[in-house]
Design a protein around this nucleic acid. Sequence first.
DNA 1: TTGTATGCGTTATCAA
DNA 2: TTGATAACGCATACAA
Lengths: 338, 338
Amino acid sequence: MTTITEVAQHAGVSVKTVSRVMNNYEHISPKTRDKVRRAMEDLSYAPSSIARQMRMGDSQSIGMLYGDPSGGYQSRLNHAVLKACSDARRYLAVELFEESNPEWRRQVEAFLDRTKVQNLILVPPMCDSAELHMLLQERGIRTVLISPSRQISGSSSIAMDDRLAAFEMTKYFIDLGHNRIGHICGHPGHVASLLRRQGYEEALKNAGIDIDEALILGAGSFFFKDALACAEKMLRMEDRPTAIFAANDEMAAAVIMMANRIGIQVPEDLSVAGFDNTAISQTMWPELTTVAQPFGEIAREAVRLVSDNVKRDLSVSATRVLPHEILYRGSTGPAPEN
Amino acid sequence: MTTITEVAQHAGVSVKTVSRVMNNYEHISPKTRDKVRRAMEDLSYAPSSIARQMRMGDSQSIGMLYGDPSGGYQSRLNHAVLKACSDARRYLAVELFEESNPEWRRQVEAFLDRTKVQNLILVPPMCDSAELHMLLQERGIRTVLISPSRQISGSSSIAMDDRLAAFEMTKYFIDLGHNRIGHICGHPGHVASLLRRQGYEEALKNAGIDIDEALILGAGSFFFKDALACAEKMLRMEDRPTAIFAANDEMAAAVIMMANRIGIQVPEDLSVAGFDNTAISQTMWPELTTVAQPFGEIAREAVRLVSDNVKRDLSVSATRVLPHEILYRGSTGPAPEN
DNA sequence: TTGTATGCGTTATCAA
DNA sequence: TTGATAACGCATACAA
């Protein structure tokens, strides 16, 4: 293993100078800088993060509080962040967080003490807990939020354009000839539910289709189980929709499952689309047309922002919106002739 | 933060003595030991793992190589290990591993260099790669294997009893009055497929039911997609089975999906059971009867074995078998009258 | 603009 | 059985 001392000797300078180059110090002559850079390359030098942490006192690890991993969204996001950290050569310390647990404060504090992380990535629904933010602010922990329901002053956040994606998906249905299009809303507490519904409604309005409140049902959550009842209700309607756009993949799966049970063919009699592109969208048949969350990009950006956080002015909070993609698969097709 | 020096002063001994007590040194008088222990308690001293790593050169982190996380099994296992490490206050460094990637050697070596981990947890299918084990052995990396297809000398392993679980599940079908019971096998390269099939066949023999080779189909993988064809073939048989036991949940999901499409009622006309208790088993309707892998216990045991590894004699390799549970849910019922 | 010397908290060497 | 002191690799106060 190469050390800073060896680099210094190889470059014919002092260790301090090497340190300066590594940390992008201001006052340094270009000549010395190049010399040092070359020496680092020659010796394929990599600074020891351990020693650095030792000296600096704080951990360089990134922390993440994550929720119930049984949901496909959490699961994909966790893996994406794990991979992004790995690629960025950063450690990730994770802790399961349940706000329903009355001990959560103590748990989070223990996590912080143990890991000494200064930077946290927060995903839904944790990123919307006011109490959690208070606690973190008290302790001076910086946070990066993924798809929060509202901005938190001092925290950067990353999101996709839920409204636009829902608009596009609905428009796709309309272009296929559908005009009775149902929507199953997700958890009312999360802004994504609202935005997706807005996108859906705007697309209808835009096409001159009247909004039929009977075709908009709220499951009260993002869960498969809760969506089953909505699906049954909608599919047993006298004049049932020819297409249903669910606010996430698990709920779309519930629609397909119910349609199959009732004997409605997908996509011949009914088109179904979801949102998120989680695992379940490909473990059904036909496969689900859905909106692909840019999980990889979101995670990479989060890690990048965490790294920037150190230098960033905390009074400013940036928000990045990342592009999504619509995946056209087998669960959608032209509206039935009638 | 309390340091070792403060503890030494408080106890009236040298730092080295405190260090000795912490690391359970042999030659130390019980009196001094107690004195130091008390001092550590009084000051609620916790040794700095950073400084320790700095001194020792190696990382205390546990490493894990994981495969394609889109499968429910990998996903659950990853989370379980993450949680177990967190509970045991150990860091986990993870890396995505794909043996199909021709660069995998370099990738693993880079991971090892970067993280300096000495202990690795290996899950299927990585735990069965002879080449990977060679590489790790060369570098002196100790491993703990989860559900490997074969033992590796010097590595501990943890597994559940696949054969027994499959036996029990099949017996459950028989007790429900089924006598035409189909089986969909998983990836032939993994021993779990074989064991599950053996358990299935033994239960049949045990009940005096002849084994009908036509009712045993191999999907060639553990994937939903590949199981669809098997399911269709089996369900379109003239004398189709009244129950199907699939070697994992995703394949069971394919059976249910296909049954619904064909118009076969589950569980009235057809009982279906899976294996693993992954997320998909509860995002279908009816919910899937399945074998619950003891993910949590497996992960905890793995972390425990990794911690023991340091002291363990590497010429001995232990294997732990952990108890499973069968979850009876809505997808199974009595055999149809007829 | 650059270099020297010191310390972060721990373990190891060697001597007592 | 114990203790003084040197390392581990890096960053910084201070000096030049």
